[in-house]
């Protein structure tokens, strides 16, 4: 086929938009690396070995793998994975409903989903904390009041207390903090995917005798594979790097709720800028490797646009 006039120019312009943006991000990571190298070059042997010890946690592989950094990294990646799976479970039906159904006040529902993304992350954490403190007070009101005669202290409602203790300053709190925004992002992606999907395929499936659920599962959902992937990637990437709401709602407790981004924040507040950057580079590198593997594993045949059928 003869190329259309201006085809090369068009291709060049659009591609350079993508490449230029990626280059800026790559540049950011490279200057971070240079900063660390400059630090190592100007620091004494003692300082440098202290840096490596803080960064990796020890001299041999066992110490590295059992060290703080690896534990925090695993906690970040693991919590983000749990969050993403939970988010997709909610986002697939929610995205479908927002795309296909007529829900009264749909604009309002849709806008509240956006609100989750608009809220500053720190405020998300504070709001969660405020919500749970209100919950705790409710629990106290529902429970046994203190006994004035025996002086026995009151006991809060068991269920509410359990819920509070389950999330606040605990690992599930990390997932909850990530989940609220991560799900909003996934819903956005799923809605766009269902909007782009061909509705007729589903109608045909219905006329061929599929149940409503069957048509969704076998005709609608497979078309939105790229949406699931995009939503999952967005949710996961966001969750891996998130720290502000995690730090305030789940705390920054070493060995329990301190994720790698929280650690980098703490290292900056005590002035270890180079350490924070090095930790970030490790995390970014591993997260990018995971994303690349994921994209290869789930890739579409090259050059096909639109949903996979």
């Amino acid at each position: 086929m003869k190329p259309a006039p201006g085809g090369r120019l068009f291709r060049g312009l659009t591609s350079s938009a993508a490449v230029a943006f990626a280059a800026v991000i790559a540049l950011l990571l490279v200057v971070d690396l240079l900063y660390i190298l400059a630090f190592l070059a100007r620091s004494s042997a003692g300082e440098a070995s202290g840096f490596w010890r803080e960064l990796l946690g020890g001299g041999d592989w066992a110490a590295v793998l059992g060290g703080q950094t690896v534990r925090e990294l695993l906690l970040s990646l693991g919590s983000a994975t749990v969050t993403t799976l939970l988010a997709l479970v909610l986002a697939v039906p929610a995205g479908y409903a927002l795309s296909r159904h007529r829900i009264p006040g749909k604009v309002v529902v849709d806008t509240f989903v956006d609100a989750a993304i608009v809220l500053p992350p720190l405020i998300m954490g504070v709001s969660l904390l405020v919500l749970f403190s209100a919950l705790r007070r409710t629990g106290e009101a529902l429970g046994t009041p203190p006994d004035a005669l025996t002086g026995e202290p009151g006991r809060p409602n068991f269920l509410v207390q359990w819920l509070y203790d389950f999330f606040v300053y605990q690992r599930p709190g990390i997932v909850l903090a990530q989940f609220l925004v991560g799900t909003a992002l996934a819903i956005r992606a799923m809605r766009a995917a269902f909007d782009a999907a061909d509705r007729r395929v589903e109608d045909v499936a219905l006329t061929l005798g599929c149940s409503r659920f069957g048509a969704f599962w076998r005709a609608a959902l497979p078309q939105t594979w790229s949406g699931v992937l995009a939503g999952g990637v967005m949710c996961w990437s966001y969750s891996v790097g998130l720290f502000a709401p995690v730090q305030i709602f789940a705390g920054a407790i070493e060995g329990r709720t301190r994720v790698l981004p929280t650690r980098t924040f703490l290292e900056i507040t005590v002035g270890h800028l180079e350490l924070a950057l090095a930790l970030t580079l490790i995390m970014a590198g591993i997260a990018m490797a995971v994303l690349i593997c994921l994209k290869f594993a789930l890739r579409r045949p090259a050059g096909t646009g639109g949903p996979v059928s």
Binding site: G66, V70, R71, L74, L77, G78, S79, T81, R171
Partner: peptide
Amino acid sequence: AAALLAAAGCGRDEA
């Protein structure tokens, strides 16, 4: 993903 979760879970036990 399950393997990753298991790994994170191991870290939890250690901690």
